[in-house]
Amino acid sequence: MKSWKVAGLTVLACMAGGAVLAGAAVFHGWYDVSATGSHTLPVHDLLDVAQTRSVQRRAAGIAAPDLDDPDRARNGAGLFRANCVQCHGAPGVAPESYALGLNPPPAALVATARERPAPDIFWIIQQGIKMTGMPAWRYRLTDAEIWDVVAFMRVLPTLSPEAYREWEGGERTSAPALPGRPEAQARVGSAAAGRNAVQQYLCATCHVIPGVAGARHHVGPSLAGIADRSYVAGTLPNTEANMQRWLLAPGQVKPGTAMPDLGLTDQDARDISAFLQTLRQAD
């Protein structure tokens, strides 16, 4: 019995010590809240699990209507283009400049549509998510319109960039413009600056990047070990210069790629390329 009491007191003491440490971290401002760096991986994982479980609990009683009606998906495509692609992007289409750098970054909806059930997606669109920039669309769209968006999102993972443009009526969404952004004096690429840049350009919404917190579901290949791969995008020898070329104009390097033109500056491309050169396979 005495050993159980000792164990219980030890657990309580650890919990109290953890609470004091957390309170001190908040009070003294030790946790970095700047948007130029991501959450730490433990914080990101905790928030991601909390969000996923919360949505699952609240969407459990929602019954999805018939989402296979082509008219429903077509209407949803128009709503998606008007309200969603600006922050989330689409196959071959980058988010707008104001969405780059949101922290946490908006999810790549191709992966969301592939991994989440329809009721969960409906609830997220309808209710929004705190502290993410995702609004509650229930105040702007009817429930029927939200289900139309869900219906189109079920189609989204099957679309190539060309097929997505056909759903848009053949129009090409332009890359994000950064008017008035001066190009700083050129310098060699910095891996530290590149690590920050991949967060700002939402790279971790589509790719697993070691040490960088991002989306839970991804649509692009993992970048782990990319420095050891022979080719960039399966077409160019893997050199820093070719990586920069790919980052600046992916559509020119590999026509039809789903990798969008993100509007990088030359310096950003040098920095990101330098960071990617640090991502080697573990021994």
Rank of each mutant, 00 (worst) to 15 (best):
G211T: 01
L12G: 00
L159S: 06
A111H: 09
N83I: 11
V212W: 04
L79T: 04
H39A: 13
I62A: 11
M153I: 00
T10Y: 12
C206E: 01
L12F: 11
E166A: 13
H28G: 12
M134H: 03
I129P: 05
A111N: 00
A94I: 03
A177H: 13
A175L: 03
P161L: 07
G8S: 14
R187P: 04
E145N: 08
Y231P: 06
R53E: 14
R154H: 04
L79R: 05
Y201W: 13
V232T: 03
A64C: 02
A107E: 05
S38N: 12
L223D: 00
G101K: 02
A19M: 08
A215S: 11
A191N: 02
V155D: 06
R114I: 01
T158H: 07
T52W: 04
G180M: 03
G92H: 07
R57F: 10
M1I: 11
G29Y: 06
G29F: 02
L178R: 14
D120F: 00
A19Y: 14
G225V: 06
G133D: 02
L178G: 05
P135D: 02
L264W: 04
A163T: 03
I124A: 09
V149M: 10
A73I: 01
G251W: 04
C87P: 08
T40I: 01
I146T: 08
G251P: 04
D228N: 12
A60R: 12
L248G: 03
D69N: 10
A22W: 10
A90P: 10
Q126M: 07
S38K: 08
C87G: 01
V55Q: 05
R280L: 04
A118F: 06
D266K: 07
E166N: 11
A233E: 03
A224T: 00
A282V: 11
S160V: 12
P119T: 00
D68R: 14
R181S: 09
V85S: 03
A99Y: 11
T52H: 15
S34P: 06
S222L: 02
T112D: 08
S190I: 09
P210L: 01
M259F: 11
Y98N: 08
M259P: 00
A73M: 03
G169V: 03
D271R: 04
E171K: 15
